[in-house]
Amino acid sequence: MKGKIEIDQELCKGCGLCIQVCPKKQIEFSDALNKKGYYPASFKERDRKTTEKLECTGCALCAIQCPDVAIEVYREEKEQSTTAKKAAPTDE
């Protein structure tokens, strides 16, 4: 596992844009309502059916698209430190 995300269940309004942009299809709507009454997005580390471990790369596309700044992204450190600014591989 190279990366992971944490979605703040109370900040999320369930707009689904993160689900739309995740290249690994690793985000889904939660079954449980949050306090505001939305079904928030949640991070799945394993495929529901196969229970196979999924490989989040920490690309941060979900966090970049998230309108509510509800997602924090973590990545395994390799070489030198990476900053949030450099997180997105699609950055030009």
């Binding site: 970049i64 700044v69 992204v73 990476t82 949030a84």
Partner: peptide, 8 residues
């Protein structure tokens, strides 16, 4: 793991 994306 290092946090690479957080609230400014």
């Amino acid at each position: 793991m290092k946090k690479v994306f957080a609230r400014p």
